[in-house]
Amino acid sequence: MSDLLDTLAAASPQLWEGTLVTLQLTFGGAALAFLVAVGLGLAALSPWVIVRTLVRVIVELFRGTSLVVQVFFLFYVLPLWGVELAPYTTGILALGLNYGAYGSEVVRGSLTSVPQGQWETTTALSMSWLHKMRRVIWPQAWALMLPGLNNLLIMLVKGTALASFFLMNDLTFVSDQMRRTAGTFTSYGIAMVIYLLIALALSWALRVLEARALRRLGLREPTKGETAKATAEAVA
């Protein structure tokens, strides 16, 4: 036990650094992913066929080609075209676009799940687009989309582990370095526990938001199974 504490104490500065890098990638990636998801999700319901088709192509391209391929594309191919991105930018861009594309399916699905009558009512009241979204459609869709976004956020946290492949000293990289001194079990064990804590904290925060959104609408919480099914549809 004291051995473990010693190794922990010795490695704690690097572990802290690594955790910070992972957190920065998580928050940066999640912020971009959210913007992309809402933007593409709303555009997917556009009345113009051209916009809808374009959104479909973008979403399927990012969903279909694997996060790792996209990261490598940004990291290896763009410099050949004269675009040099900082590792942070590479990571945040890849995570944001990939999970944003998944998220847009959740956003679109939630918007279309708002009962038809609600949409018709806003038309009958001749609300402007912004008005109907803000006051009627979005609050209901928001409650529906949070469980799916929650699952995707956890996947994004896990996806940041790729960062060690484009020269970032993230948590995975640090734990891999620690293996030589601290041993396999301790180093990867600690990394997994830190990832778990990050994921649990974020997941809890989103569940608080969800409970609040549901309370406002007076609805019940969906079961975990229902959420898993909806997420599987988004990430496939």
């Binding site: 946290v157 990867y188 990394a191 997994m192």
Partner: peptide, 18 residues
């Protein structure tokens, strides 16, 4: 939940070296 919430790369490395 622990398995679901921890990254595959770390799990791969962990199992590989264990």
């Amino acid at each position: 939940d622990f398995i679901r919430m921890t990254p595959i790369p770390v799990q791969l490395l962990f199992v590989y070296y264990t």
